[in-house]
Design a protein around this nucleic acid. Structure first.
Lengths: 147, 147
DNA sequence: GCATAACCGGATATTGACATCCGATTGAGG
DNA sequence: CCTCAATCGGATGTCAATATCCGGTTATGC
């Protein structure tokens, strides 16, 4: 339902949000987020192209959020790596009819719209600010307690 | 986001709902729904196993809804062919911690829950009953007007 | 009981998502 | 300007989703 790539991108972004304005190398991010390092590198490149993240090469380089966590919504990260494709025309491969969807596809598209809304509703900052008492599992920077 | 298989299963089920208690052959269903016939056959077999649809072999056989359209929810068809996998434990591959999700995965799972809710909200009967005036595109049995 | 209609199940492409590898490029620091 | 650290980009490998094919099985009707 949600692609691995989205999951990886969100983990990376969430981690970077815990150290805003600082950069981390692919290897560092991979270790904390448990994402295969080579693939994570590709995912981060996508985030760079979409200007979610900024990269710097060379010594002391790495990846850094392009904006403060308050200004980064989960939806933006999803759309950057694996966009939610809304249904805008009848998928039956029919040419000559307008933009109106049949009741079935209207409902499917509504469900997709719900997803978008849900993802647009949170920023990375909100995710990190959440109290999340009682064993903050999978939570950064408490990653050490997570294994 | 939604798999082809789900799309195909829903088209087939929606079509069968327009002729409840009657059976249609794979070829008939494939023609109306514009789904590749060989693959549709596999999808229908899945629906048979999940008791969404009943099959009969031999002359006059085919596929038929197992229940009246009022009793068939979109969600059931989705779950039959490509189940929505809710996030029940931290996906970071960590063994020794409970069932509690971190804020990030809590939100992702909430989005999945929204999808489930959206799909559970409609029955096939409701989809067919919708007024859908003004060129009922992609709509059965007006399939002829659809091409 | 034979011919025909239709689904069933297994074997086999094909395609895109996921993943790896490595040489090229860029930047920092002495 | 040389070395080292790090990303970048292209080539390649793997696997599950999609899709096809066909022989086997079951049911109908004569």
């Amino acid at each position: 339902m949600l692609s691995q790539t989205v999951e990886y991108a969100l983990r990376a972004a969430t981690y970077l949000a815990t150290v805003p304005k600082q950069s981390r190398t692919v290897d560092q991010i991979a270790e904390v987020t448990h994402v295969p390092v080579a693939y994570l590198s590709k995912v981060l490149q996508q985030l760079v192209r979409e200007e979610i993240v900024i990269s710097r090469r060379g010594t002391g380089g790495g990846f850094m959020l392009a904006r403060p966590p308050e200004k980064l919504r989960v939806l933006e990260i999803v759309q950057a790596v694996d966009p939610i494709e809304r249904i805008t025309t009848c998928p039956l491969g029919l040419a000559a009819h307008g933009k109106r969807l049949c009741p079935l596809h209207r409902r499917l598209d509504n469900a997709l719209a719900e997803m978008e809304r849900a993802f647009a509703a949170s920023t990375l900052a909100e995710i990190l600010a959440e109290p999340t008492k009682s064993v903050p599992l999978c939570n950064f920077p408490a990653a050490a307690t997570c294994r």
